[in-house]
Simulated assay, not measured.
Amino acid sequence: MSRAGLPAEGPGSHPLRLVAVTHGAPSAANREAVIRLVDAVASERPDLDVSISFVDASNADVAAALAADAEADAVIVPLVLSAGFHVRTGLSLGLDRIGGGAQLAAELGPDDRIVAVLAERLGALGLADDDAVLLAAAGSNDPRAVRECFETARRLGQRLGRPVTVGFIAAAIPRLPDAIEMIREVHPGSRVVVGPYLLAPGTFYDAATGAGGDLIADPLLLPDRPAPRELVELVLERYADVDADRWERA
């Protein structure tokens, strides 16, 4: 666990804590990219005690994995773009088992600030008018998470002024290689430009890179660049939504 920021106290002398949680077995590049985001959040709000917890997605006992971080009055902010099983079931049940005052914030997406970063990443590739854009999402067995990915594609299409197709790397259809093949059949001769709807480099990004597109943009976070301000603001907003609601009920 990497911790940044200073502890502070809010109303009623309760400590303010933001625990950013990400799941999976991160590569070095993935870990560094995510830590850059959390460090930026801590720098933006030095009054908060900000920490990060990497929860292994294969760990069946999510509660035990969170126990060290989910202290009373902590707000758990899941660093996920769409809330599938790991957020709606794994983290929620884990916090219920722990008990206490820890609360779970909403997932990061869909959100226009994410769309802005996606558009910037795609723009860096130099999109041509006849390029076909495809949003590559991780995928989920949760229908709501799948719908959220299609909503992000719709918003991105509006921002770019062109249709955006969705392809899933796992767990949902259309699968990314199938979506690329479909685009080639419908738009022969057009470049297929992939915009990864992925927070950071890692296994899913590697899979998207090898799926057969002509170009692929960078993920939202990179290990060698500062975290986009839009994402820093988004994490803090998810925290603030829970924190404000908590004090209203107190």
Rank of each mutant, 00 (worst) to 15 (best):
R3M: 15
A4P: 09
G10W: 02
G24Q: 06
G24S: 10
A28W: 15
I35Y: 14
L37Y: 02
E44F: 01
D47N: 05
L48P: 02
D49M: 06
V50D: 11
S51F: 02
D56C: 06
A60D: 15
A60H: 14
A60Q: 13
A60C: 11
A64S: 15
A65N: 06
A65D: 07
A67N: 12
V75E: 09
I76L: 07
V80K: 07
V80L: 08
S82V: 13
H86E: 09
V87Y: 03
T89D: 07
I98Y: 08
Q103R: 09
E107D: 13
L108K: 04
R113G: 10
I114S: 01
V115W: 00
V115R: 01
A116R: 04
L118C: 06
R121T: 03
L125Q: 03
G126V: 06
G126Y: 00
D130W: 08
A132H: 04
A132Q: 10
L134F: 01
L134I: 06
A136E: 00
G139V: 03
N141V: 14
D142S: 08
R144A: 15
R147N: 14
E148M: 15
T152D: 05
T152A: 08
L156T: 06
G157I: 07
G157A: 03
G157T: 07
R159Y: 08
R162E: 10
G167H: 01
A172G: 04
L176D: 02
P177S: 14
I180W: 00
M182T: 08
V186S: 13
H187R: 10
S190Q: 13
V193P: 03
G195Y: 00
D206V: 07
D206N: 15
T209R: 12
I216L: 11
I216S: 03
L221C: 08
L222Y: 02
E233D: 12
L236C: 05
R238T: 06
A240K: 08
A240M: 11
R246A: 07
